[in-house]
Design a protein around this nucleic acid. Structure first.
Lengths: 194, 194
DNA sequence: GTCAATCTTGACGACAATGTCAAGAATAGA
DNA sequence: TCTATTCTTGACATTGTCGTCAAGATTGAC
């Protein structure tokens, strides 16, 4: 190695993730990334090729952390408690920042029509893995949920989390989202609250 | 009136709705609209002002029809049957077209960060009215659902429909969406299937 | 038939984003 | 210290979109 890279790649990807999270893959520009990272546009092109390549790296970082966090939340307590923890975590995740940054996965999924195959696959893969994590958690927990197939139930849970992400974008507050999630869990476990 | 408009406004708005539905407010360009309607860009600017004004008209048309369709579906049968009809209708709605056009409301909601106040309000208003329609249907139906507050339950249902729209964008098929919705309704009514 | 108001048309300038490139800067290795 | 290689920089051409406008076309009203 002779000409040596002048910037910290880990840091650049982390900052890029923040930019993509706030603006979305489509609306974040290379200029945005250059300004946020302090690295010239030309250098970014040289190092990564194009915007999508940077996004894929950032998204992978995000996906890994997200699944880990989700898994930990689900593992605490029984199935019902785990689900409550899980919803708490993802709602905080999507309502953090000012203005709230929303859910990167959902935002990216909605751009499906104008995204590349690679991007679409990452989204599908993340949702699929999330489904598996949830299925495992509710299927093998001390306190089981109603006798509905765990895989089917997991897909319903994932779908509901995507719905929360949309509601957040529509302007619902963290509190409102938490209430909706709580009601959802109540219906799942058959509890009734009047 | 002296210089008379050369095109049918109803038709132009209907075509514009189709374009926005397939491409989204942000990605549909005035050129797209001009090409699809056969009306020159300049004429569209003259008649409506800008793209957003056209969108608002199209969206209002869409919202009205959507609420009517949803209300009719919910009104058929008891609360549980109404919900099943409702999900059938909205799933068909978002998986029609080739490629499937998805859900206009959800797509628009996800563009919240780059949309005007007027656009955001239309989305919020539609979701809010949908919530009311659902709440009424499940609260006053012959076969009632579990004794959870109808308003809360309605919000959960709306949230789930938004989730379905995201899953559609993520690549899930009509069949998969219907299965998820069926499972969701089963959990709501406390039925268990295996 | 003439007029005046409105619509239509096509071209224009401005702007923002993309991706590329040649020239200069920096540095590991000999 | 010198060299070869890679990175960095700023400029460039290209493309796509927006919104505007003057000139021409159209047509209801008189």
């Amino acid at each position: 190695m002779v000409g040596v890279r002048q910037f910290d790649e880990q840091e650049v990807i982390a900052i890029a993730l923040d930019v993509f999270w706030r603006k979305g893959l489509h609306d974040a520009t290379m200029q945005d990334l250059a300004a946020a990272t302090g690295v010239q546009r030309g250098s970014l092109y040289n190092a990564y090729g194009d915007k999508e390549a940077i996004f894929l790296r950032a998204f992978d970082q995000y996906a890994g952390r997200f699944l880990e966090t989700a898994g930990n939340a689900l593992a605490q307590g029984g199935a019902a408690a785990g689900l409550r923890n899980f919803f708490d975590v993802i709602i905080v995740n999507m309502t953090s920042g000012s203005p709230p940054r929303g859910c990167l996965t959902t935002r990216t999924a909605l751009d499906a029509a104008i995204s590349s195959t690679a991007v679409r696959q990452r989204v599908q893969n993340l949702l699929s893995r999330l489904e598996q994590v949830i299925s495992k958690a509710i299927g093998s927990a001390p306190n089981r949920l109603p006798a509905i197939d765990a895989n089917r139930l997991a897909r319903v849970v994932v779908t509901f989390t995507r719905g929360l992400a949309v509601m957040e974008r529509a302007g619902y507050s963290r509190k409102q989202l938490k209430e909706a999630a709580a009601t959802f869990v109540d219906t799942l476990i058959g509890e009734q609250q009047g």
